[in-house]
């Protein structure tokens, strides 16, 4: 685990970028709010007694948590603890699984995304996603990034500018500037994953969900992704699943610990979770006694 110098590490990433913009938009935060504290930022996603079932099996048990805007929230826990399931229930990717069933509320800007009048496609246009395994389309780099713009009908304006901006933000532009027309599959694993991140941010969503985005990558590529996640939180809300605890400690503002059985055991500021967890089992997990 990296040393954070004891202080709340949110200062470095989020606060500096936001000073001076308080109250100007609905994304702003107050200077007076306690740094990294529970009320440091507006809640953008709120889960209330969320249960998810796969057939008869219950994958998530009554999850309640509030995810703050423009911060990095990490979901950690051992395999099969339901952290990915929770992530995929945020943008209703679980809808694609026939046997999945959701009960309870998951509110995005206060609106339950499981209400009947919510179109999951419209929801996913607000909440982008990056997957565990890099999954670029067998199309050109340019078309990969433009894909979201095209399907969302946002390709009428300056597509090239938007694609370049997204690649720039994903820290990939320098590496691929001369080969935007070559296949996305020709890139290395780490570049492919940054391409997928560019694809997710090109249509400018509010939230980016990341499902273990670095688990298939080598350490160098991983650290690039981690840097990127911290930067993305300046503009987007990032929810990231990882089973690498050091990674969670390095990049997240808040950490939610899921333990076996699909239960959310503890959710707090990352410093608190890693330095002084309330729950004994969380402490055991963090210190590597199990999991």
């Amino acid at each position: 685990m990296t040393a954070n110098g004891g202080g709340p590490r949110t200062v470095s990433t989020s606060e500096s970028s936001r000073s001076g913009s308080e109250f100007e938009s609905d994304r702003s935060v107050s200077d007076e709010a306690p740094l990294g504290g529970p009320d440091a930022s507006e809640t953008i996603l709120e889960s209330r007694d969320l249960d998810v079932f796969y057939g008869d099996e219950q994958a998530l048990q009554s999850i309640s948590m509030e995810i703050p805007e423009q911060q990095v929230t990490a979901l950690i826990g051992p395999s099969g603890c339901g952290k990915s399931t929770f992530l995929r229930s945020i943008n209703r990717m679980n809808d694609l699984i026939d046997v999945a069933r959701v009960e309870g509320d998951l509110r995005f800007h206060g609106k339950n995304v499981y209400d009947e009048d919510v179109d999951p496609v419209a929801l996913r246009r607000k909440i982008g996603m990056v997957f565990q395994k890099p999954n670029p389309f067998p199309k050109s780099i340019f078309e990969n990034v433009a894909y979201g713009l095209r399907v969302q009908g946002k390709d009428d304006g300056d597509v090239e500018g938007k694609v370049r901006t997204a690649l720039e933000r994903a820290a990939l532009l320098d590496e691929v500037e001369d080969q935007l027309d070559s296949s996305g599959l020709d890139l290395s694993g780490g570049q492919q994953q940054r391409l997928c991140i560019a694809r997710a941010i090109a249509p400018d969503p509010e939230v980016i969900l990341m499902d273990e985005p670095a688990s298939a990558l080598d350490p160098v590529a991983t650290s690039k992704i981690e840097d990127l996640v911290e930067e993305l939180a300046e503009e987007y809300t990032v929810v990231i699943v990882t089973h690498n605890m050091q990674q969670a400690a390095r990049i997240s503002d808040k950490t939610a610990v899921f333990l076996t059985g699909g239960r959310l055991v503890e959710f707090d500021n990352t410093n608190k979770i890693f330095e002084n967890p309330e729950n004994e089992r969380v402490e055991d997990y963090i210190t590597g006694k199990f999991g």
């Binding site: 399907v151 969302q152 694809r199």
Partner: peptide
């Protein structure tokens, strides 16, 4: 691969867009 469909849905595509732009090609 199902990951292609997921990538498309994740980018906010409808089922028809996914089939047309990703699955069929």
């Amino acid at each position: 691969p199902d990951s292609m469909r997921q990538a498309s849905y994740g980018a906010g595509a409808t089922k028809w867009q996914t089939i047309r732009n990703v699955v069929l090609p």
